[in-house]
């Protein structure tokens, strides 16, 4: 058997199983969704095999005039999801960056413990943790009681069921996603480079802009992407902390599939999310290539 052939067989042996798995259980369903998103919803759920572009029309600006006028509500929910996900990325970055810096300078033993603490929330059910936030944020919750107890406010403030609560909750949930890639690139940062920069005349701010930021950019981009993607499609946090007021696209998709039983419309919404994510990944690849060159 020649070498090239053996290499091919080796590759098939190593990658065959995961490829087959992804084809059947990931790519297959995705294809079904793509097809469904161009079909007509059945009256009692399911689909009728009639081509329709109106699922996308309802979102983007044209509707089936027999039943409804175009309402930009879906588009605004989509835009709100983009905005809240972006805000989540920014806040988790602001929290994680200094923390990662601080932890990376600890002694090895404490460092490992600190990283363990960062991942600790994963050990508790997400629902439980989010309901804990409800207890904190609700009008009679700890936060409002504290504020009123210290006399800072006289009336309870509406924290729950606001954008604020959703971004707070998602930041809380996704901080480990942001932290770990950030930590990876910050930990590799050579402290001697910071001294070299100061030695060559740079102030702390200049050193941050010219040395620290570029050197940790891969971590920032990586962390932002893997925070943004699940935040965009998230439906658990907005349904617990956002209620009916702060609906995100994830909630909408969930409703279309589970309550409204309008699978084609739900599929179209899901495709929109996927498009946004793909666009983002392309941008990231471009950035990464430019940074790596």
């Amino acid at each position: 058997m020649n070498l090239a052939r053996r290499k091919v067989l080796q590759l098939i042996g190593l990658l065959g199983a995961p490829t087959a798995f992804l084809l059947v259980f990931f790519f297959g369903p995705l294809l079904i969704m793509l097809v469904y998103s161009f079909l007509t919803p059945g009256i009692y759920g399911g689909v009728d095999w009639v081509f329709s572009h109106l699922n996308y029309g309802r979102i983007l600006g044209w509707a089936d005039t027999r039943y409804e006028k175009f309402d930009p509500v879906f588009l605004s929910i989509f835009l709100r999801s983009l905005r809240l996900a972006a805000l989540t990325v920014v806040t988790s970055l602001l929290v994680s960056y200094p923390a990662a810096f601080w932890i990376s300078r600890m002694s090895p033993g404490r460092r490992d413990f600190a990283i363990f603490l960062v991942t600790l929330p994963f050990f508790v059910s997400l629902i439980v943790r989010l309901f804990a936030w409800v207890l904190i944020l609700r009008p009679t919750g700890f936060l409002n009681q504290g504020l009123m107890g210290t006399g800072l406010t006289s009336e309870p403030i509406e924290f729950l069921y606001t954008d604020f609560a959703v971004v707070l909750g998602m930041t809380y949930v996704f901080i480990p996603f942001m932290f770990l890639p950030l930590y990876g690139s910050i930990e590799k940062l050579d402290m001697a480079q910071l001294e070299a920069s100061a030695d060559l005349g740079a102030t702390r701010i200049q050193t941050f802009r010219k040395v620290i930021l570029p050197a940790t950019l891969p971590g920032i981009i990586g962390g932002s992407i893997i925070t943004f993607i699940p935040a965009l499609g998230n439906f658990i946090v907005p349904s617990v902390l956002g209620g009916a007021k702060v609906l995100m696209i994830g909630n909408l998709i969930e409703q279309q599939f589970l309550s409204a039983r309008n699978w084609p419309f739900g599929s179209a919404l899901a495709m929109m999310v996927m498009t946004a994510v793909l666009v983002l990944l392309v941008v990231q690849l471009r950035l990464a290539r430019r940074g790596g060159a």
């Binding site: 050579d190 001697a192 001294e195 070299a196 920069s197």
Partner: peptide, 12 residues
């Protein structure tokens, strides 16, 4: 200015 032991060049 200093020449550092491990050079500390900016590798980006």
């Amino acid at each position: 200015n200093t020449v550092f032991q491990r050079y500390a060049l900016f590798n980006h």
